[in-house]
Amino acid sequence: MNVSLLISAAMRYSAPVLLAAVGALFCDCAGVTFIILEAQMLLGCFFAVIAGYYFQSWAAGVLCAILASILLGWFFIWITMKMKAIELVVGFAINFLIDGLTIYLLRMVFHQTGSFVSPEIPAIPKITVPVLSHIPLIGSIFYQQTWIVYAAFLSVLVAAILIYHTPFGLHILSSGANPEAAKAVGIDIGKTRIKCIMIASVLCGLAGSQLSIGFLSMFSEGMTVGKGFIALGALMFSNRKPTLVLFITLLFGFAEAIGNQVQLSGTIASELVLMIPYLAVLACVFARKPVAEQI
């Protein structure tokens, strides 16, 4: 097993989950039950491929993915804040709505079933950092990755500073911890939450682009396979600590990368290998310290 290849693959696999988890971190801190990460990622995947294919440019693909994700975020905001719908129910419904919508559009507009593969789908260019990539072993971190991967790891740092060291972060935390008190001191909770959802939308759009045109250049039905929920699992385990979010998503990245290597070697059935990331999340849930009665 090639270690530097493994590290490089783990980085690639954990980047989308990390982006989604950071987005969820903002929403969680602001007190929004935001479970449409999966849908936003899938929509991002779809539009990144489609727009990239039409405009023959990866930049247009990424831009459209972000726009689509933001649009979906606005729909969520409108229906939960203005129409007073239940966040959990709407989130759940939107996840399946987007699953159906992408399948529908894929079949109706592009007459493809299952997946959309074409050599004309552009890929996000891979960047190799000149000097750093020559460091033995960890040099592979800086070798042939898209800029979104670097952005994902940067986003953790930004989130940590923004949430825990700025006035804006204080607004976020207070509207999550005690909305009434936050309102009393003049914080506009609605606006703070909208900003958080927008941040999450942009990050999920990026995650979707990385997933689709970042390394495969294809779209297949339901290609996020629960990555949004894995991000939620990582968030839940992390107790809102950005470093823990980073650590856990990297763990999942490694689980997936190792799984793929094992699958290639063909010693273990592929079904069992595919289970690994989900088992890892489940193990994380039960690795926590038991708590007293929860109501």
Partner: peptide, 27 residues
């Protein structure tokens, strides 16, 4: 059990178990 004794929400373990069941039955 995750919800009551480990302070996690039931939503994420449920989703994970869905995928695990799908692959496990396949296997």
């Amino acid at each position: 059990l995750a919800k009551l004794y480990y302070g996690s929400s039931e939503v994420v373990p449920c989703m994970m178990l869905n995928y695990i069941a799908m692959y496990l039955t396949d296997y």
